[in-house]
Amino acid sequence: MAIKVLHHGLATTVQDLGRPGYFHLGIPIGGAMDRYAMRAANLLVGNDEGAAGLEAVFMGPKLEFAEDALVAVTGADMPAKVDGEERPGWTAFKVKAGQVLSFDFLKAGARICIAVSGGIDVPEALGSRSTYPIGALGGYKGRAIAAGDELPVGEGTLASEGKSVPEELRRMPSNPCELRVLPGLYWDRLTDAAKESFFADEWKVAPEADRMGYRFKGGRHLDFVERKQPFGAGSDPSNIVDSCYPYGSIQVPGGTEPIILHRDAVSGGGYFMVGTVISADMDLIGQLQPHTPIRFVKVDMDEALAARAERARMLAALRESLG
């Protein structure tokens, strides 16, 4: 069974839940930006949560199915169509052999996850099917899909057509979106005024926002506590001796535009970081469009862990609902 790509959309890649274990060599975890949505899509079509699906950003692909399959589209609000006829999101539907799956315009969010019963069956690379385009690793030939590609699909079941994720178990960012941040890392490089304005100001998603990182603009410039730069750090006050970067860490080169590193993060570099977006809010970032207003909200470790537990409860409810 295969899916023929008629149009690639904008940037559509094969993703699963990622490739942990190689960050110390500069190979990031990758995987769906909105993991919860990818898990939900897979569960809807009877796959393991970690099966490979497609992630499409801003614009959906156009796909022709060689055989019958069960499909689910989750994440952003971008209506799916089968031979031009609309299908609901967060719901499993059938696509018959010869039919074409396409998408309407994006209404809300940024990324859809497309799961197909059986999963996209490209070979695993370092334990994952996720695409890491910079390293030409994993996915379909190490790159985003393109018109003419034939995507292999594994053996699936057609049992669960019509299953749907209840409204309260679908998660999308609010507007303005709040991203919870644990201050730390090089937070104390900032002046008290900068520490305050970082959380007080409204920021907007900049056009430079992709799987590697999301950039934000619009807040006040962050000033640094004066110091003599340590040997090897570089001359700019925002420079440090090149260190590792946590996933979700927020660097602010030159003190101007914060960048949150995401699934395809560079593993390290020489910019100071003010803190880290908590694990519970990482999925939300993948659903932010450019120009979306956001606010950083300060939390402590206890609040971060409570939010994480809340996400775990929601995932448990999802599994129960679709199980």
Partner: peptide, 18 residues
Amino acid sequence: YTFGGDEHLFVECSDEMS
């Protein structure tokens, strides 16, 4: 020692290179 969110522990042995 400092935490990078709820999933990373960051350890800076020195702020200068040696």
